[in-house]
């Protein structure tokens, strides 16, 4: 099994978990560049792993939650790549990768912008659906906060910044323990759109 994992919910992270267990990974920790560089990074890790696209057997995709525009780039990339090669694609909540790397019970937090954080609670596995809240509204537990989200509201939420790695998504899938989810973005918010009211006269 040669697994390609892609996640663009926090910057870009892509990885290949080769059949011999070796992981090849590339990440860029900034937003707004997913459209340009996701495919390039995928190409790069495939080359590092010495694989052609047709040697990939499975695609694993982090489906967020994350800022929508960037998140969709990774999902579109993963979905179309898998479709073009006729291989299977598997979706995992992006936050699972962070909890996997931390390795203990925790609350994973990532930046949701608009003064909010995405979060989910983990024991051995994810124990809640991911949610989006103001930092002050995230229910307090005895568990540590973990993930890139701890950097944003240190006076309310502090903890350990564990980065999101696509390699972790590939490993979770390979372990057979993944909590697979539907292949669709975890938006958690409705689009901002207002129906027009009564038309105002121009006079």
């Amino acid at each position: 099994m040669n697994i390609l994992a892609i996640d663009t919910s926090v910057g870009i992270t892509v990885a290949v978990l080769r059949s011999d267990g070796q992981v090849f990974e590339a990440s860029l920790d900034s937003h707004g560049i997913q459209g340009e560089l996701t495919a390039t990074l995928v190409n790069q890790v495939l080359q590092q792993a010495g694989l052609t696209p047709s040697q990939v057997t499975d695609v694993v995709c982090g489906v967020g939650p994350g800022p929508f525009t960037g998140l969709r780039v990774g999902i579109a990339t993963a979905e179309v790549f898998a479709y073009a090669l006729g291989i299977e694609i598997h979706a995992i909540c992006s936050l699972d990768a962070i909890a996997h790397d931390y390795g203990c019970a925790c609350v994973v937090v990532t930046n949701a912008r608009r003064k909010e954080l995405y979060w989910a609670k983990y024991g051995n596995t994810r124990e809640s659906q991911p949610q989006v809240n103001l930092p002050a509204d995230i229910p307090s537990t005895q568990l540590p906060f973990v993930g890139p989200g701890v950097e944003f509201y240190p006076e309310i939420i502090s903890g350990t910044n564990v980065p999101l790695r696509a390699g972790a998504l590939a490993q979770i899938f390979a372990s057979g323990q993944a909590q697979l989810v539907p292949l669709e973005p975890m938006y958690l918010r409705k689009p901002d759109a207002q129906e027009p009211g009564i038309r105002k006269p121009v006079l």
Partner: peptide
């Protein structure tokens, strides 16, 4: 539309990459 363009561009790049 910026966000709309990105979905098409990401998909097209994935096709180009997968198909070489």
């Amino acid at each position: 539309l910026a966000g709309a363009l990105l979905v098409g561009v990401a998909s097209a790049k994935a096709l180009a990459l997968a198909l070489g």
